[in-house]
Design a protein around this nucleic acid. Structure first.
Length: 430
RNA sequence: GGAGACGUCGCAUAGUGGUCUAGUGCGCUCGCUUGGAAAGCGAGUAAGGUGAAAGCCUUCGCGAGUUCAAAUCUCGCCGUCUCCGCCA
């Protein structure tokens, strides 16, 4: 959500921002609704002032005749007031709907473009491995080593279901442990959290996933939702809070299961563990002072933290600056980290790092007092620290060996009981 | 699941129809005092909207209602606590 005053004063900026994000948005209906809102509100407040004034004088009036006249007048005033309040309610509903649809303005450095093909590579790390044998994809490698059971996954959990088994399960635990250790050692200012996935609608509205993303999110019979990221609960933890300036920035590393319906992606990545309905993620969240420079500074920090985790596992990756059409409603700028998938011959997304300025903080009402004692909304940012099982694809494929075994990256071995390889082949299904 | 109690300005509490523009205590800020501090004394201490300003309006969990007038009365919802039941 943006400030209505800002919107009124910067119509061109908003329109230009929506264009860059390839969103259909017309600011005029909102301005019109706001005009009606202001006009009606002024009239209502005037009537209330009159009502309050008479009410405060009434007890001092002794003359019953005069009192009765006032009673009648007040009753009439009240009827008018009630009608206007009813009208305002209707206008406010429309106003709020329109306000929730206003996109945040993308940064000047965001590349132009409609979809991920226009994303711009900004960084490359690691050597793309060369194989002198025919490579396999993660599904084949994992099934041969009895690391995954996708048939059982489908049988038990349905489409996109999966069971991770044996060393794959161990690898997940190892990756989480690595992330925890890295943060504990290198970024001790981050507080660890385990946060709810089952959240209320307001939390998803507040973080900007609703109302426009209804199809993407699981909903329970109690009208709660299953969040697709720990960001939702971690941000909502601070709803309605007034933080002290000295406490900023707040840095969190939050773990949670994540649930995504993946509606509208039925033909994409239907095999394996690339795109699943249920996964686990450590998410970094930062709340900082309301300055663009601070946001940019921490945006880069979040990116480096995540790169550190991939580097510790020796997985080659690049970073792209997402183009306008690839940004969410509230995002100002976003980097994706994409790690190399040998069987596909391309980089695939493992991390998503974005900042929002005060877009989320306005919706969630998270504030602090600045140096002049003025209340301000905080800025918010977030980035994946590490998400499993998707990263197992890159981990396993890049480390596959000619005999079908998988070399465990050095950085993970101490969490795998010192083991260096997964293999030899345990079961040959096909 | 059943019964009861409660939800007030950062925290604690007062307030049961107009004198509440919400009192008091704690905390916090500033000042006096002091060599410095503590104590003491004094002053201040919510947010939002609107306006050039003075001011005006809103908010006592949320929503609806009664009334000329609601923190206060009625109804619904949400939340917290206590007891009982059930379960680990």
């Amino acid at each position: 959500m943006l400030d209505i005053k800002f919107i009124r004063e910067n119509k061109e900026l908003i329109t230009e921002g929506a264009r860059k994000k390839h969103l259909k948005f017309d600011v005029e209906p909102l301005i019109k609704a706001d005009d009606s809102r202001k006009k009606l509100l002024a009239s209502i407040e005037e009537k209330r002032a009159e009502q309050n004034l008479v009410s405060s004088r009434l007890p001092q009036i002794a003359d019953q005749e005069a009192k009765n006249v006032l009673f009648a007048e007040m009753k009439k005033l009240k009827e008018e007031l009630q009608k206007e309040e009813e009208d305002l309610k209707g206008i406010m509903k429309e106003w709020q709907t329109l306000m929730l649809a206003v996109p945040n303005i993308p940064d000047i450095s965001v590349p132009e473009g409609d979809n991920d093909e226009s994303n711009k590579e900004v960084k490359v790390w690691g050597e793309i491995p060369k194989f002198d044998f025919p490579i396999k994809d993660h599904i084949e490698i994992m099934e041969r080593l009895d690391l995954v059971d996708l048939d059982a996954g489908t049988k038990v959990a349905g489409f996109r279901g999966y069971f991770l088994k044996n060393e794959a399960a161990e690898l997940e635990f190892a990756i989480w442990q690595l992330a925890v250790d890295l943060f504990r050692e290198k970024h001790p200012e981050y507080s660890f959290m385990v946060v709810p996935s089952l959240v209320k609608r307001e939390s998803l509205l507040g973080t900007g996933y609703l109302p426009q993303g209804e199809d993407e999110i699981y909903k329970t019979q109690d009208a709660d939702y299953l969040a697709g990221t720990a960001e939702v609960a971690t941000m909502s933890y601070y709803t309605d809070k007034i933080l002290r300036k000295e406490d900023l920035p707040k840095k969190m590393l939050a773990f949670s299961p994540c649930f995504r319906r993946e509606a509208g992606s039925y033909s994409k990545d239907t095999k394996g563990i690339m795109r699943v309905h249920e996964f686990y993620k450590f998410e970094q969240v930062i709340l900082c002072e309301a300055s663009h420079e601070e946001s940019v500074k921490y945006h880069e920090e979040l990116l480096l933290n995540s790169e550190g985790i991939l580097q510790a596992m020796g997985i080659p990756y690049h970073v792209v600056a997402n183009c306008g059409g690839d940004l969410g409603l509230g995002q100002v700028k976003k980097y994706d980290i994409e790690a190399w998938v040998p069987s596909q011959g391309k980089y695939r997304e493992t991390h998503s790092c974005s900042y929002f300025h005060d877009f989320q903080a306005r919706r969630l009402n998270i504030r602090y007092k600045d140096t002049e004692g003025k209340m301000r909304f905080v800025h918010s940012l977030n980035n994946t620290a590490i998400a499993t099982p998707r990263v197992l694809i890159q981990l396993i494929e890049n480390n596959q060996q000619a005999d079908g075994s998988v070399k465990i990256p050095e950085g993970l071995r101490k969490y795998m009981g010192g083991k260096e390889f997964i293999g030899p082949v345990r079961s040959l299904k096909n």
